[in-house]
Simulated assay, not measured.
Amino acid sequence: MLKMAVLLSGSGRTLDNFHERIKEGSLQAQIQVVVSNVENVLGLRKAEKYGYPAFHAKDNDAVNSILKDYDVDIIALAGYLKLYTAPPHLKKAVVNIHPSLIPSFCGDGFYGSRVHKAVLKRGCMVSGCTVHFANEVYDEGPIIYQQAVALDYDETPDTVADKVFAAECEAFPEALNRVAARGIEFFWNRVQG
Rank of each mutant, 00 (worst) to 15 (best):
T85H: 15
K68N: 09
K68V: 14
E48P: 00
P53M: 05
Q28Y: 00
L8A: 05
V34E: 02
G123L: 04
N40P: 01
G51E: 12
P53A: 15
H98K: 05
V126L: 14
V131Q: 01
C124L: 10
V34I: 13
R13D: 13
L77V: 05
H132E: 14
E39F: 00
D61M: 08
G10T: 04
G10V: 06
A86I: 13
L90P: 11
L81K: 04
H98D: 03
D16C: 08
Q30A: 15
G10C: 07
R45I: 00
V115E: 06
S100P: 05
M125R: 13
K92A: 12
E20S: 15
L27Q: 06
N96S: 12
K121F: 06
L7F: 03
F105L: 03
G25F: 07
K23G: 07
G43P: 07
H98V: 13
H116C: 13
T14H: 02
V41N: 10
A29C: 11
L120G: 07
V131G: 10
I66E: 08
P87K: 13
Q28L: 10
V95R: 06
P99E: 08
A76T: 12
S127Q: 02
C129A: 14
D59G: 11
V119S: 07
G123M: 09
K91I: 12
A57F: 06
A29P: 01
T85K: 15
K58W: 00
N64K: 09
N135W: 08
R122S: 12
C129Y: 05
I75G: 13
P53V: 05
K58A: 15
D16R: 09
G25C: 06
Y52S: 12
K23R: 14
R122F: 13
S127M: 06
D69A: 14
K121P: 00
D16G: 05
I31P: 01
P88I: 09
C124V: 01
L101C: 08
I75N: 11
M125F: 07
H89C: 09
A118F: 00
A47N: 04
R45Y: 07
N64H: 11
I31M: 06
L83P: 01
